[in-house]
């Protein structure tokens, strides 16, 4: 029995880890620009695609331990590259405009990226499973095995959470981002280039999503619609945790991750509904989510 609970716990942490990577980016971008990025899931998908595509090309030439690093770098770079294009070119023009136009713009970007994926990588899923198999599985007792790669993903999630905490509270750029989120005018007045802060923040968020997509890819596949599906869960995370709050994204990811596992195990019919029911209940009592702010 205890090993089953352990299995659930690990699976929940696994979901939470990559959900956090997507939700953290979503929430950092919203915290500063007040734009809910519907295309954020697409950046996650880009990470998965670029990593799978690159590994398909070069994996034979490099030693297996390097795979893990290259996957992460490829995913991060791919998503960051898209971020560098869409923030200054498109998103910047709708800051301060009506919300319907902001949402529609990111929706348009989502549609465009979805079809660009189809154009570049074709209609069939892209996979690179070797890193997943290479590590093998460990016994967690009672004849149950759990793939070691899952622990890698979990560790990555926590490592990046730690990094983000450090970045936001201890580094100069992080502190500037937080102060700009609180008050743009003052931040601009004391001589910071707010435009470039926005771009950097967006790239940071995109990179996180890209890493998320890249590290999940070996245990799944890169395929069309990935960015649309993941967004639904990432949304639930930020709604529960509170838009704009990193702490909220972390706790929200854990709640959604665990709910998903329990849901899939015991209430498969209402797994998705269960997550959103929790979101709705949180919103009824805390309209801005657990740690959200106006």
């Amino acid at each position: 029995m205890s090993n089953i609970i352990f299995l659930y716990l690990i699976s929940g942490l696994y979901y939470a880890a990559y959900l956090f990577l997507v939700a953290a980016g979503l929430t950092i971008i919203f915290g500063l620009a007040r734009v809910v990025n519907l295309a954020h899931g697409a950046l996650y998908a880009i990470g998965a695609y670029v990593a799978a595509w690159l590994m398909g090309l070069i994996s034979k030439q490099i030693p297996p331990p390097l795979w893990y690093i290259i996957i992460i770098i490829a995913g991060a770079a791919g998503a960051a590259f898209v971020g560098i294009i869409i923030e200054p070119l498109l998103l910047r023009r709708v800051y301060g405009r009506l919300e319907e136009f902001q949402l529609l713009l990111t929706f348009a970007i989502l549609l465009i990226i979805e079809d660009l994926e189809l154009m570049i990588w074709g209609p069939y899923p892209l996979a690179f499973k070797e890193p997943y198999h290479y590590l093998g599985a460990v016994s967690i007792g009672g004849g149950l095995m759990y793939p070691l790669y899952g622990f890698v993903v979990i560790a990555m999630g926590w490592l990046i959470a730690l990094f983000l905490w450090f970045f936001m509270t201890k580094t100069k750029l992080g502190i500037i981002i937080r102060s700009a989120a609180a008050n743009k005018e003052v931040t601009a007045a004391i001589g910071h280039n707010v435009k470039s802060i926005y771009t950097k923040t967006f790239i940071l968020g995109a990179t996180l999503a890209g890493i998320g997509g890249a590290i999940v890819m070996p245990s799944a596949t890169a395929q069309l619609g990935l960015g649309i599906d993941i967004l639904v869960f990432a949304f639930a995370v930020v709604v529960i945790g509170g838009l704009g709050s990193l702490k909220g994204a972390l706790v929200g990811s854990l709640i959604v991750g665990m709910t998903r596992v329990v849901g899939i195990a015991y209430f498969p019919e209402i797994e998705l509904a269960l997550i959103w029911l929790i979101a709705v209940i949180v919103l009824v009592f805390r309209p801005l989510g657990l740690w959200g702010r106006e």
């Binding site: 809910v36 919300e99 949402l103 639904v232 949304f235 639930a236 709604v239 498969p268 019919e269 209402i270 797994e271 998705l272 509904a273 959103w276 029911l277 979101a279 709705v280 919103l283 309209p287 801005l288």
Partner: peptide, 19 residues
């Protein structure tokens, strides 16, 4: 917040019909 709440409602309805 209104937008996202309605997004949630829509998804709950979706998963009900699906599952």
């Amino acid at each position: 917040f209104f937008s996202i709440l309605n997004l949630s409602f829509g998804l709950i309805i979706y998963s009900f019909f699906l599952k």
